[in-house]
Simulated scan of single mutants.
Amino acid sequence: MNIEYMHAKGLPYKLDYHYYTLQAPKSENIPLTLETKIKSEVSKVGETNRMTVIVKNKINGELPMATTKIGIPAGLTLQNALLKDLVDKKHISYYEIFDNYLVLYWEHFDANETKIVNLDLKVEFAGEYTGKASNVYLYYMPEAKFWNEGIKTKIEP
């Protein structure tokens, strides 16, 4: 099948694309660092697996509102009651969940402060999974992010 445009010299078009990479970009000159680790790379369906998120202010000065996007591997699910408890106990200021990311917000960081968040993830589906790369950044500077690679997990039936 052919389509011919008799009076057109060109065909206008628009191209949109989205992608993600399993390799995190390099992070430079960013005042925050992020580390994510999972207790066990191999788990069984029905168990709980703990993910630890460590965010550090690496400068000797206060920082304003910060955001971190944590890639949650498929096969693992967050527990909403735990997240609400983190807000109630003021370990985090706010959270959102979308596109296999858990997004955490903090209103401020003190000089050289380290924040640690433990997430108990329910192991739901067998398979091998790699979460999206995670990042942390100052809320008003989303162009400057500290990245780390996505968490890998193997879930057995």
Rank of each mutant, 00 (worst) to 15 (best):
T52H: 05
K115I: 11
G131H: 05
L138K: 07
V87H: 08
A24E: 03
E4T: 07
K132L: 09
G61F: 10
V42C: 14
K58E: 12
T68Y: 01
S93D: 15
D99R: 09
E47K: 00
L86A: 13
Q79D: 11
V53L: 07
A133Q: 02
Y105M: 02
T77M: 04
E62P: 04
G131T: 00
N29R: 14
G71A: 08
P25M: 05
K84N: 09
K56L: 07
K44L: 09
E35T: 12
L76T: 01
D120H: 08
N112I: 06
P12L: 07
K145Y: 07
V123N: 08
G46A: 00
M1E: 05
N49P: 04
V103P: 01
S40P: 03
E35P: 08
M65A: 14
Y19F: 13
P31R: 04
K69A: 07
N60L: 13
V123Q: 09
E128K: 06
P12V: 07
S93Q: 13
A144R: 13
H108T: 13
N29E: 15
E124Q: 06
K115D: 00
Y13C: 06
S93E: 13
N148F: 15
K26V: 09
Y139K: 14
G71V: 02
T153L: 09
Y140K: 12
T36A: 06
L121S: 03
K152D: 09
I30C: 14
V53W: 01
E113W: 03
V103C: 02
E107Y: 12
S40Y: 10
K39I: 04
E107K: 11
T52D: 07
G127W: 00
E149L: 03
K26E: 11
L121M: 02
N57W: 00
L104C: 10
V55Y: 04
T48E: 12
V87Q: 08
I38L: 15
T33S: 12
N49L: 03
I92G: 02
K9S: 06
L82N: 14
D16H: 14
Y105V: 01
W106Q: 03
D85G: 04
I54L: 05
K89W: 10
L121C: 01
P64C: 08
V117Y: 00
Y20L: 10
K90Y: 07
G10K: 05
K39M: 06
K44C: 09
K145H: 09
N49Q: 04
M65R: 15
V45N: 01
D88F: 14
L32F: 11
E124H: 04
A81T: 14
Q23N: 15
E62H: 10
E128S: 13
N29H: 13
P64T: 13
Y129G: 00
S40D: 15
M6Q: 05
N118D: 15
L11D: 02
L121P: 06
T68E: 04
T153E: 08
E96R: 15
Y140H: 14
Y94S: 10
E113T: 08
K152T: 10
M65D: 11
Y105P: 03
R50N: 09
N135C: 11
K26H: 07
I59T: 12
N100V: 08
T36S: 06
P12Q: 04
S27N: 03
K90V: 01
L138H: 07
R50A: 09
